[in-house]
Amino acid sequence: MEYVYSILILVGIYVVLASSFNLIIGTAGLVSIAHPIFFALGAYTSGLLAIHFGLNPIAGTLAGAAVAGVFSLMISLPSLRVSGDYLLITSIGFQLGLLQVIKNLELTGSQGGLSNIPTPIAGPERGWIFSLVALAAGAATVLLIRWIVRGPYGRAISAMRDDELAFVALGRDATRIKIVIFAVGSALAGIAGGIYAFYFQYLSPEQFEILASGTMLTMVVVGGMGSTWGPVVGAVLLLALPQAITFLRLPLSYMAPLQGMIFTLLVILFLFLRPQGLVAPEAPAPLRHKKQ
């Protein structure tokens, strides 16, 4: 049963990660690959606060989200003021650089990882309570993003994506919208990190490598870029996939490369054959007016 719970928890966490990554790259069209590092920032922040200050998990997770959101400004403020293209470059640098810091700081457990994160719940209920929390976080993320995309803010984002210069010339502050979306997406990844830290109680820097953004990107592309429900479908499918290949009983040394190949192949196939993904994007809510 613990196995099922851990998969449900990963589904919840990856729904948050894929949905928030989709908000950044799909909805707002901002090309970044630094999503794993914001996941890490949330995880390490809440883990460290729990270890050293005994902070309760809810406050710790929120603190992780806040740290991820504030750190996102370090990338977005300088690069988005110039042009969207610079975001990709700074995000690569930020992802690689900050992970090196995490790998080398004694505070974060350096290469060995951060262990002994206290768990808020012990006993037989632990599994289902955490599953519930993770799935609720996933659902809340999807609903929050749906609310953003379908409302006046989403209308502004659509217009910005259609023609940014015309949008700005109407008096809209496109730079601020991008910075806000990037911060919201990053903070959500921080929440996923907090849940991860408190459930698994151990963080290893390897799991936040740049390649992890490939997994998230696959979920987004397969599920449907810019679509609200797409990343949910993508996350569930791509978490089920590795579980499915474990039944092939291949040696472990084959498993990881095989998984990588399947993920890459999926992205390529989808980009060629079904670029909109499995679920098509949702339009903003229609404007209601008297003349209808």
Partner: peptide, 22 residues
């Protein structure tokens, strides 16, 4: 330079000097 994925009204609603929704 119209917003091509949007309706006529949506094109206009994002265009006032102050757009509260942003």
């Amino acid at each position: 330079r119209l917003f091509r994925t949007m309706t006529v009204l949506e094109n206009m609603v994002v265009a006032p000097r102050e757009y509260a929704g942003e």
